[in-house]
Structure formats: C-alpha cells, structure tokens
Simulated scan of single mutants.
Amino acid sequence: MREVIIALVSSSITIVITSFFNYHFRLRQEIRNESVKYTTEILKNVYTPILKILLSAIVPGDGYDGITKEMLFEIEAIMKRNYELVDPHLHSIIWSLKTEVRREHYEESLRLFDKNKTLLTHVEHHFNFYRKRIGLPFDKTKLTRTIT
C-alpha cells in the first residue's frame, strides 16, 4: 500500500513539474511568435515602402541629394496608414521635414529636403535592424551607423 501511495505522489509531482515547464516554454514561444509577427508587420508596412521611396531619390553616380515634397507627402501617407507601427524618432524626423516644407510656402516644387540624410540613415538602419531580428539577410554596415 505504501508503494502505491509513493508512486501516486511521485507521478503527481512529475505531472505538475512537466505541466509547469510546458506552460512556461509555450508561453515564451507564443511571445516570440507575436514579436516576430509585429516586427514583420513594421518592416513590411512601414520601412520597406519608405525605403523604396528614398531609394528612388538616389541617382546612380550622384548619390542621394534629398527628397522632394511629393516624396515627403508619400512617406507621410504611409505613416498615417500605419500610425501605430511608426516609431517616435521617425515621426519627429518627418515632422521637422514638414516644418521645413511649410517654411518654403510650397513655392519651389523642385527643392530638395533631407540633404543631411537624417531620414535616409534612420530608415536604412531600422530596415536592417528589423530584418536582422526576424532572421532575414541584412546589411551589417547600415547597423553600425549611429542614429542621431
């Protein structure tokens, strides 16, 4: 009788411990999956479309001189559609560029903004950072730049 009680108690303890560890690891896996899903959404809906717009402003041989106000408005539209995914630093960069556009009073349509490459550097850095986080190929040189 005593052996049966010991076997039942040890089985119960084993079941409880196994259930605890199973729950703990499943919870961590679920959190990781949600994080990857959220990171993928940020990359797909925010940084990839913005980077495409910025890359269209790069002239082969001349490099990046800046973006036009139309490109800035396209980027702003992307940010408005995905407002909950935009980080505050990107929002402040766009806000400062919009302030610069307002100061120009929309007079020159060919004037270029972001000549100091603040927006381009920020977007390239975060694009590669998020690609690294979800395990996609990324450019290591873009991650080593300091973001100001």
Rank of each mutant, 00 (worst) to 15 (best):
M1Q: 14
R2A: 06
E3Q: 09
A7P: 06
L8P: 01
L8W: 04
V9G: 08
S10V: 14
S10Q: 03
S10E: 01
S12L: 14
V16T: 15
S19F: 11
F20R: 10
F20W: 13
F25N: 14
F25K: 12
R26A: 10
R26M: 13
R26K: 14
R26T: 05
R28D: 06
R28Q: 08
Q29H: 07
E30I: 01
E30H: 11
I31E: 10
R32L: 15
E34H: 07
S35H: 10
K37Q: 04
K37I: 02
T39Y: 04
T40N: 06
E41R: 07
I42Q: 11
I42K: 10
L43N: 06
N45E: 15
N45R: 15
V46K: 11
T48F: 09
T48I: 01
P49S: 09
P49Q: 06
I50L: 15
I50R: 14
I50M: 14
I50P: 13
I50T: 08
I50W: 15
K52I: 03
K52Y: 06
I53V: 11
L55T: 09
I58F: 05
V59I: 01
V59Y: 02
V59Q: 07
P60C: 03
D62V: 14
D62E: 12
G63W: 02
Y64D: 13
D65E: 03
G66R: 05
T68I: 02
K69W: 00
E70Y: 02
M71W: 13
M71Y: 15
L72Q: 03
F73S: 10
F73I: 07
E74M: 09
E76M: 08
E76C: 00
E76F: 12
K80C: 05
K80G: 02
R81V: 07
R81L: 08
Y83S: 12
L85S: 08
D87P: 02
P88I: 13
P88L: 13
H89I: 13
H91M: 11
S92F: 12
I93W: 10
I94S: 03
W95C: 15
S96A: 14
S96Y: 08
S96F: 09
S96Q: 11
S96D: 12
L97R: 05
K98F: 00
E100N: 01
V101I: 01
R102T: 07
Y106M: 00
E107M: 11
E107T: 01
S109I: 15
S109D: 12
R111H: 11
R111L: 11
F113E: 11
D114R: 05
K115V: 02
K115P: 03
K115G: 12
K115Y: 00
K115T: 00
K115S: 08
N116R: 04
K117D: 10
K117H: 10
T118R: 15
L119F: 05
L119H: 02
H122Y: 12
H122A: 02
E124I: 02
H125R: 01
H125G: 00
H126I: 14
Y130A: 06
R131G: 03
K132Y: 07
K132A: 07
R133I: 04
R133E: 07
G135K: 03
L136H: 08
K140H: 08
T141L: 04
L143D: 07
T144N: 15
T144L: 12
R145A: 07
